[in-house]
Each structure stands twice: as C-alpha cells, then as structure tokens.
Computed example of a mutant assay.
Amino acid sequence: MITENEWAGAAARNNAEWCDAVCRTHGLRGEFGAGMWSSARRTPPLYPDAVTLTPDASAADLVARIDTASPGCSVKDSFACLDLDPLGFEVLFEAQWIHREPGPTPVAAHLNWEQIKSSESLPAWETAWNDGEEGTGLFRPGLLSDGTTFLAAYAEGRIVAGAIASPGASVVGVSNLFTSADEESAWAGCLAEVARLWPGLPVVGYESGESLDAAVGQGFTPVGPLRVWLHTG
C-alpha cells in the first residue's frame, strides 16, 4: 500500500516535471538531481526556481543551484521541512499535496469539458485563467506537443472554466484549475475528462484554503504539506 508520504513524493515529482516543461518552452534548461529539480536561470513568473523531491534535500545545495540575485526567486519546499529563513527567504504560502484514486465524482458535471488542441486557442484560455486580463504568453504552444493537456469548459462560446493536466508515468497532475462558477462542479467536470483521457490513473496536485475544501469535496485526500519560499535578500 502506498503511503501518504509516497503520494506526496509522486505529486512533487509530477509538479517538478510540469515546471520543467514550462521552463523548456521559455528556453530554460532545468536539472534533476540531488533530491530536487532546479533552474540556474530565473524561471517564468509564478514558477519556482527549485522543487524538492525528497525530504532530505540540502538547503545549502539547493540555494547554490539557483539565481537568488534576480528578483522573484522562489523555492517549492515539497515536504515543508527546509529552513530557508537564514538564507534570505520568507514563506510566501503553504498548501497541501492532494491525491485522488480513479473513480466517479460525487457531484455531477454540469459543463462539457474538452481539450485545447490548437496554439491559436491558448491566448483565450490564458485570458480566462487570468480573470479576463489579457495573457502575457506564459503558456506557450510548445506545451501542446510536450504531453501537456489544457482543458476548457465553454458556455455561450466563451471559456468559463479550465485546468491543466500533466500526465506522468503513474499519475496525472492537475493544476491551474479555475472557474467563474462553483469550484466543486469545476472539479467534477475536469475529473470526468481526466478519467476519460487517462482511465485508471490516480490524480495529484496541490491546493489550499477553500480550493482545498472543494477538492476534498470531490474525493481528494490531503497527503502532506508543502511550503513556497520567496527570496527577499
């Protein structure tokens, strides 16, 4: 039987692979090693410069691998066990890794979800994800050919909910879930599409606050804390 700590590790690995995919489309080369994923150059906005993959990753080794001189440098401490305060970081936020076994959702889906298949549709997806503000090209077309799946639900011709699914060897990671309506219903629709595309695979991700409550309402289980640190000098 897989333990909660092992599920947290699987979720962290999947998330690091997703971060690596985003960085590659921005011309950045990340590196897996020493219990972490890291990028020597500053990553795109909202994406960490390092993600720990094991609880025993070295804080000093991690910081030596990233660019703390550039504003916005951050670290995803996947097991909430690093002390980065002496190294010039402060906690930005905390969350919980979540895991869900395959199966039907408790709440019926009210919207039909589908895949974004063309690069021409990505800007509209990013604008909807960004609360109607025009996107900056954070999500680039290369992601569509890199195994990543952008999911969207439409109403009257516009995107009203969406998420990103990142399949791995043994799990599917879901991130960036957004909706203009009920979050539990959005999870229901998203999970139904994920189950159709990857039947039998568990789903992982991370959430906090009310978004965590909504995920738990759709069958997710919290499996361990994570902490994101921001370098402040």
Rank of each mutant, 00 (worst) to 15 (best):
A109C: 08
G72S: 04
D49N: 15
A109N: 10
A34L: 03
L87T: 00
V160A: 01
R140A: 14
I164E: 04
I159V: 14
E120Y: 11
S211V: 11
W125V: 07
G162Y: 13
A34M: 02
N14L: 05
A161N: 02
G35V: 09
L197N: 02
E114P: 01
A155H: 14
W97A: 13
T68W: 02
A124E: 14
S119M: 06
D56N: 06
T221G: 03
L138A: 05
T43R: 09
P48I: 01
C81I: 10
N112F: 07
L92A: 13
A59E: 15
T232S: 12
R227C: 13
R13A: 05
L122V: 15
L84K: 01
F89V: 03
G162V: 07
F89Y: 08
E126L: 06
V174M: 08
S38D: 02
I98Y: 06
L111N: 12
R140M: 10
A95V: 01
W18Y: 15
G30W: 00
H110L: 14
I2G: 00
N14T: 12
E31T: 12
W198T: 02
I164K: 10
A155W: 11
A80G: 05
F93Q: 03
N130I: 04
S175I: 10
G224R: 11
V75S: 00
G209E: 04
Q115E: 14
L201K: 13
L46K: 02
R227Y: 06
G27V: 04
P222C: 06
T148N: 01
V174Y: 01
S118L: 12
V174K: 02
S185I: 14
T52N: 03
K117Y: 02
W37G: 07
A124P: 03
L201H: 07
E114K: 15
I159L: 09
I66N: 06
D56H: 07
L177I: 15
E207A: 14
A50G: 02
S208L: 09
G233I: 04
D49F: 02
W18A: 05
V51L: 06
A21R: 12
G157L: 04
H110K: 13
W97Y: 04
G9H: 03
V91L: 13
S39G: 11
N130C: 06
R41K: 15
A181I: 08
A165E: 05
A21H: 01
E184H: 09
E31K: 11
I164Y: 08
I66T: 07
P141A: 09
M1F: 05
S39N: 15
P167I: 13
E6Q: 15
G219C: 10
W113V: 03
I2V: 14
S170K: 12
V172R: 07
D182A: 10
R13S: 08
W7L: 01
P202Q: 02
S39H: 08
A214G: 00
A188F: 09
R29M: 08
S118T: 15
G219T: 06
L144T: 03
L138Y: 08
V216K: 06
G219K: 04
A57M: 03
L226I: 00
V203S: 13
D131N: 12
R227H: 03
V204M: 10
V22M: 04
L138F: 07
N14V: 12
K76D: 00
A155N: 11
A163G: 13
A153C: 07
S39V: 00
G30A: 10
G72F: 05
D85I: 13
S175Q: 03
A188K: 10
S78V: 05
F139M: 14
S38V: 09
T221F: 00
F178S: 07
E4G: 14
